[in-house]
Amino acid sequence: MAYKFDFGAIVPHWQLLFDGVILTTELTVIGAVVGVGLGIMGAWARASRAPVISQIVGVYVELIRNTPFLVQLFFIFFGLPALGVKLTEFQAAVLAMIVNLGAYSTEIIRAGILAIPQGQIEAAQSLAMNRVQIFRYVVILPALKKIWPALSSQIVIVMLGSSVCSQIAAEELTFGANYIQALNFRAFEVYFVVTGLYLVMSILLRMGLKVLGNFLFERRRHV
């Protein structure tokens, strides 16, 4: 009694998958942009001279890095309303991704900042730049350049991790898949195809980040 695969059963529902891909993309783009921004601020705080702020950020980083994303998501979506913070599914998913990526990128970017030679900073100081100016003009770009591959990998991980946002009924790609298999009872086929979609998305995202990196860091050769 062999099972007959029927991938055709997905075709009528392609719109759901398409919408899911769009939403996953939205989640990822917003999560990545704001999350990395948060990471830059976190890394700045970690490197700053204010020990209290640095320690608070350190606690945030460790808390996030040592708990599952799914639990963070549940806490934000189900737990925060107890504090009067009521979020939609999408908002909760985006916030969880931002908070999660913010912690990881804080650590990654911090490593990049620590790798900037002290001489660079002293040169900037000798030119009378203040702390903010030094960070903005001298430190951050070379630091990001150094850790761009690691940061890119982390962004891909967060994109793939967003798959569990289906659990709070955020209507991303996995949610679409769950919905379809409930309609056509073709769970394996649906998840197989959706896995392929995620694979393609992660490859595209990786490529996109590489192009972005080239744009940000590789300079126009004038010679």
Binding site: Q120, S126, M129, Y137
Partner: peptide
């Protein structure tokens, strides 16, 4: 002003931008 043994030019700026940076931002 100060000039260092190891030059310490900013690698992500051209020679011109290295020189322009501080007059502009400071």
């Amino acid at each position: 002003g100060m000039v260092f043994q190891q030059f310490n030019l900013f690698p992500h700026y051209t020679a011109l931008e290295n020189v322009m940076l501080s007059p502009q931002v400071v």
